[in-house]
Nucleic acid binder design. Structure first.
Lengths: 174, 174
DNA sequence: GACGTCATGTAATCGGTTACATGATTAA
DNA sequence: TTAATCATGTAACCGATTACATGACGTC
């Protein structure tokens, strides 16, 4: 069974502990969203596929009248997860509209360049603020992963914001 | 007329100088690919749309029997490009499978973590090598843009590779 | 003559987002 | 009682990739 990108996030989340589709969405929004987003439109269909493939198992856990299906990873799922983690290939895709604009801003003028640099810097500062908010939560996780990856995100956006600032200074001086 | 992401790359490229769809593909593969990729499947249909919208203009420039359409940006296209550059919104999407794997690798074991870190480091080193190859070309561009953005890419992947190395060392010591 | 590059295009498929719909529970 | 949250789902749409197809030109 081939895992889709959303399938991998789901399988990984369920390897930590059993949860519902709603929980997965909430957790990814708080954690992997910065480098691997997932939407409801993909989560629920994917949960069904994974269950059909025997990688996860759903149990009905209604709370009162409210239905709720909690999924747990199966041994086969854990094997599949390990297989994926073992593959050396790592997709790395960046879609940075700020860089794209900067790439072209020179054909117009200095004003445009500075404006784009400021926008990009502010966007990174805003992301930094969000990451700092969730840091205490990530820090409370014992196992390797969440906290380290969050640290990567912090350093990355700090670098990006500083780079914009440096370019702005260079621009002013020229 | 709303510009698609591929439409923007095309419009930006044509603002530098007139060229064919093939040229655009070749140029993006050498430059924006690292933060904004484009494929033939999108380029040719998008060229037609942009031409219909009056943002670019195609001229037949066959070479012998080989057909060739060279597109040039129109004044309306330049206006649209400037409008896009002026928008403060900047999409920033990262799909980093290495980070995703690291996020989950802790539920398995130390061996998996180290392997993922090594794979990620090597991927960044490989990208660095590619970026260094195209640096002379980017450096030869007079206007602001290509060289600065390439510098960003170099610094980014250097940071990423070093981060992996640091985590590997921390892992060995623990 | 074969291979690499120039050059243009399309069809199938896939994955993802957005928007919408439904309804229960809980806290203000 | 009303808003926020919990919870599940689907349909429409969009954009992008992949693979394929065609054919001319240059050069070894």
């Amino acid at each position: 069974m081939k895992l889709s990108s959303t399938g991998r996030v789901i399988l990984g989340m369920l390897a930590v502990e059993p949860m519902s589709g709603y929980d997965i969405k909430a957790l990814t929004d708080l954690s992997t969203r910065f480098f691997w987003a997932a939407s409801y439109g993909q989560i629920y269909p994917e949960l069904k596929k994974l269950a059909e493939g025997g990688l996860i198992e759903g149990t009905e856990r209604p709370q009162g009248e409210r239905r709720r299906t909690v999924y747990a990873i199966t041994p086969a799922g854990r094997k599949e997860l390990a297989a994926w983690l073992g593959e050396p290939e790592l997709t790395h895709e960046l879609r940075d509209e700020g860089l794209l604009k900067l790439f072209f801003a020179g054909v117009l003028g200095k004003g445009e360049i500075a404006a784009v640099l400021e926008d990009k810097r502010d966007a990174h500062l805003a992301t930094l603020a969000q990451l700092r908010e969730i840091e205490p939560m990530a820090a409370s996780v014992e196992r390797f992963g969440p906290h380290e990856v969050l640290g990567y995100g912090l350093a990355l956006h700090e670098f990006a914001a500083e780079w914009c600032e440096r370019q702005l200074n260079r621009l002013k001086e020229s």
